[in-house]
Design a protein around this nucleic acid. Structure first.
Length: 850
RNA sequence: GGGGCUAUAGCUCAGUUGGCUAGAGCGCAGCAUUCACAUUGCUGAGGUCCAUGGUUCGAGCCCAUGUAGCCCCACCA
């Protein structure tokens, strides 16, 4: 025996992966249709988590399946520089050395992080290998590789030239701890309870005051107006007057604007255009001054009374409230819950601050994307995500692509030192200062939002615009990723893909749910993560893959449950032992016989195999991975191992066993790549590797008539076992009369039915076996008769019940008329069968009457 | 405020255009053991498919309303 007693994945997995790489098995091979998948690049610096394990599993299953169809499959791996994410990790490293990013220049910091990431990259690539991802490493792409940077620059340039890029002073979501802005979608909101302060602003003409309500009293120092609703009778006569802004000496107008809701608070709103998005809009509408009172360091600035300068936002809030109270201007403070934006990394409250940033005018990009999605050009799995994406795109706002961090792709824009409005596009980003036409231009210190460059991933990785790969593999066949990045990434890939290439970037978008610990998403900060590498150490890579897709439906969250992985491992072991059994029968696999079905069981197995591959093909083609796996599992475990192999122990057919082993290895390969290849290699099956040579194997299908014969035998065994167990009988014999099927399989029936003997008889002998139409009887002891009769009565009841149901249906004229004819025929046949069965049971019951 | 998802056995979940006895794995109970496999085999118990109403010959599935839970987006003086 070449196969060891049990399958120990740890002994084989790394060798198998190395073999695949050596053979170049991951390179596109088949001559059929193109099938292409590009991995959503994981963070090059981090460890892979369960979400990655799931994502790689799904992609790799799809990819290996498509190879088995003989298609030309390209599976591209990659890594993400993950701008802000990685810089945060690196800053923590610096912190350990007592340093911070402020100790380095931007370029120094970039280099340091680059080296840091390069040093960690090995780790991450090893982990992808351990997951068994059959990616073509020769296509490996990093998001800071030249082609990707070049793509980002060219896209930026095109947009610049077409006027889709503009620089504007806008309120940006700013984290004062990390010192960078975020896109709207990156801000995390939580509900917080604080106060709604009512503050009295005295009218300049001394005729009274107006009360405003605010949750942020500290920003009043930057107020440049008070607004009321034009229809609000209470305030109508005040519009046009001015108030003296408390704590400062400024006189500010009372204006009217529809934005104000008369029902909220006091119906009068303080307007702080430099620190609130809505006030910003009102400020522009009414041409108000913008006074910044909070700086990028989160401290109060100089444009305010001295006593507040340099205070943090929270202290300043307290100080302002105290001062107002002192001056008797604080009218009320009611408890108030509202949502507050936070930095998703450090939790710092996000400040809306005025900043010059690069924006993309997004509507012209969103429109064609919406159109393509609506017209169904991209197939979303699950479908519901399509509508969500449409809604998002319909309401999308301009995209701020500037980030104030070092780790990223520098924005290729330079500003005239003399004339701040004069910007140039230039790719000499390794220089801080350039001279053009005798004018000195300084580089924008910012970098691109990571999503800006990664949105070009589907075509940039393929070498757009003129590579062979691009022509052959774009649009991608499949984009598989988590639904949590539907908005930030998937939407942008579609928009940029259409904008740049004129085509949708992928034909199918499969969105998996989050891996939870049973309740919530696994995340480091919650401390509920399970490390996939640890699971592989313990149970094997295939077991993890199977466990993680068990019970999976796209778009739904899925708890990580170890027992599912154990189930996967057990299946692997079962398959291993099937191979061991076949090996023991076949001996060596060098002389291949044509598979020749002889027995009923052979036909039964081949018929089942055919229907299994048909079902699996259909399910895999519609990306129902788990259901496909279940079919494979059922065939191998139930049909092959539990029945066919058991029968083979008395009557083996070498040619079928040999062919079947090869066939199931191919079938199971996408789900258990390491195991199937290990068996393939150990038994030296041809061609050189399962992965590179395999195509779904078609075997002669079985005869239905013969398969049915075996099916009857199988049912007989099941019934016999059930009867014996239920009534607790021992040493039971089966007698039969004139039944060739039983005669043929008598030793199998004896063994699998746990019977003492199976004998032919010339007359009825013992009790009937229910549920089968064969003429056979079990001899049981007299004292077990009562138990037998009890089960008989139960069966009679069940039969009567279903008989009544069937009759009811057939007595219903509407059913006869309106139901499909074949269904009605089925019902009629079933009625006849049930009647016969019931008759048999009743006859049997009568024999024991009284 | 807008949008989406989920509710099926003790647990985790399947159940494609409605079709008649609703499935799996795990768990549970019982039995087996020189057999390829105890990472095993066999048998069994366990379900008013969230509720109510409707459509239909027929509803776990379709429609309406409600209940419970979850998610996303927007707004929040």
């Amino acid at each position: 025996m070449k196969l060891a007693k049990s399958y120990q994945p740890q002994l084989y997995e790394s060798d198998i992966y190395a073999l695949w790489e050596k053979l170049g098995a991951f390179k596109p091979k088949g001559s059929g249709n193109s099938y292409s998948v590009v991995v959503p690049p994981p963070n090059a610096n981090g460890n892979l988590h369960m979400g990655h394990a799931l994502s790689f599993a799904l992609q790799d299953i799809a990819v290996r399946y498509h190879r088995s169809k003989g298609e030309s499959v390209l599976f591209v791996p990659g890594a993400d520089h993950a701008g802000f994410e990685t810089q945060v990790v690196f800053e923590r490293e610096l912190e350990k050395e007592g340093k911070s990013r402020f100790d380095y220049s931007r370029d120094q910091l970039y280099q340091l992080i680059y080296d840091f990431v390069a040093a960690n990259r090995q780790n991450f690539e090893t982990q992808i290998r351990r997951l068994g991802a059959s990616v073509d490493w020769t296509h490996y792409t990093f998001t800071l590789d030249q082609p990707i940077v070049k793509r980002a620059y060219e896209t930026f340039k095109t947009m610049w030239d077409e006027g889709l890029i503009y620089r504007g002073e806008r309120l940006v979501n700013f984290c004062t701890f990390h010192g960078t802005a975020f896109a709207d979608i990156e801000v995390e909101y939580t509900d917080e309870t604080s106060f709604l302060w009512h503050i009295s602003y005295p009218l300049t003409d001394g005729s009274g005051n107006i009360v405003v309500a605010t949750s942020r009293p500290e920003t009043m120092l930057g107020d440049t107006a008070v607004a009321v609703n034009p229809k609000d009778e209470r305030y109508k006569q005040l519009v046009g007057k001015t108030v003296r802004l408390p704590l400062t000496n400024r006189e500010i107008p009372i204006i009217a604007d529809d934005y104000v809701d008369p029902g909220f608070g006091s119906g009068a709103v303080k307007i702080t255009p430099a620190h609130d998005p809505n006030d910003f809009e009102i400020g522009k509408r009414h041409d108000l001054p913008f006074i910044t009172v909070i700086g990028f360091d989160g401290k109060m600035t100089h444009a305010i009374p001295e006593q507040f300068r340099g205070l943090g936002v929270v202290e300043s809030r307290e100080a302002v409230v105290n001062e107002l109270r002192k001056q008797d201007l604080l009218v009320d403070a009611e408890e108030y819950t509202h949502s507050v934006g936070h930095c998703y990394k450090c939790g710092t409250v996000i400040e809306p601050l005025l900043k010059d940033q690069w924006f993309i005018d997004i509507k012209p990009l969103a429109q064609p994307a919406i159109k393509a999605i609506r017209e169904g050009e991209i197939d979303f799995i699950p479908k519901a995500k399509q509508r969500q994406l449409e809604k998002y795109l319909e309401n999308i706002k301009d995209w701020n692509i500037s980030r104030q961090i070092s780790w990223g792709i520098p924005i290729p824009a330079f500003q005239n030192e003399e004339d701040p409005g004069d910007w140039l596009y230039d790719e000499r980003v390794d220089q801080e200062v350039i001279t053009v036409n005798n004018k000195v231009y300084r580089r924008d210190p910012d970098v691109f939002d990571t999503w800006f460059s990664s949105s070009s991933w589907p075509y940039a990785t393929l070498g757009y615009p003129d590579s062979e790969d691009y022509g052959k593999y774009y649009p991608l066949s499949l984009m598989e990723t988590g639904f949590d990045i539907l908005m930030p990434w998937v939407s942008r890939m579609i928009m940029l893909g259409i904008y740049v290439t004129g085509k949708i970037p992928f034909k199918k978008a499969y969105l998996h749910g989050m891996i939870t610990d049973g309740r919530e998403k696994m995340s480091k900060s919650k401390g509920n993560v399970v490390n996939p590498m640890g699971v592989i150490d313990q149970f094997g890579s295939d077991a993890l893959r199977i466990g993680i897709i068990t019970g999976l439906t796209p778009g739904n969250n899925q708890p990580y449950i170890e027992s599912k992985v154990i189930g996967g491992r057990n299946f692997c072991n079962k398959l291993w032992n099937v191979a061991r059994f076949i090996e023991s029968v076949v001996g060596d696999f060098t002389s291949k016989e044509e598979p020749k079905p002889i027995s009923d069981a052979d036909h039964w197995l081949l018929l089942s195999y055919t229907s299994t591959i048909n079902a699996v093909t259909e399910l895999m083609d519609s990306y129902r991975f788990y259901e496909a796996y279940e079919k494979v599992y059922r065939f191998i475990w139930d049909d092959l191992a539990d029945w066919y192999i058991e029968v083979s122990k008395t009557d083996p057919n070498k040619s079928i066993l040999e062919a079947m082993l090869e066939a199931i290895l191919v079938l199971v390969h996408p789900f258990a790549p390491f195991l199937s290849e290990t068996i393939w290699q150990t038994l030296e099956l041809k061609p050189e590797s399962l992965l590179s040579g395999h195509k779904t194997i078609v075997l002669p299908t079985g005869s239905k008539v013969q398969a049915d014969e075996f099916e009857q035998v199988k049912q007989l065994i099941t019934s016999v076992r059930s009867t014996i167990k239920t009534i607790g009988a021992k040493d039971v014999s089966l007698y039969y009369q004139d039944e060739p099927a039983i005669a043929k399989y008598s030793s199998v029936i004896r063994q699998l039915g746990h019977l003492k003997t199976v004998e032919e008889t010339d007359q009825e002998k013992g009790v009937v076996v229910s549920g089968v139409v064969l003429n056979c009887w079990l001899n049981i002891d007299k004292d077990q008769l009562d138990a037998y009769l009890l089960t008989l009565d139960n069966q009679i009841k069940v039969a009567q019940g279903s008989l009544a149901k069937l009759q009811g249906r057939l007595h219903n004229d509407a059913y006869i008329k309106q139901a499909p004819a074949n269904l009605v025929t089925d019902t009629r046949n079933k009625l006849i069968e049930t009647e016969q069965e019931l008759e048999r049971l009743l006859l049997e019951r009568q024999r024991y009457h009284n």
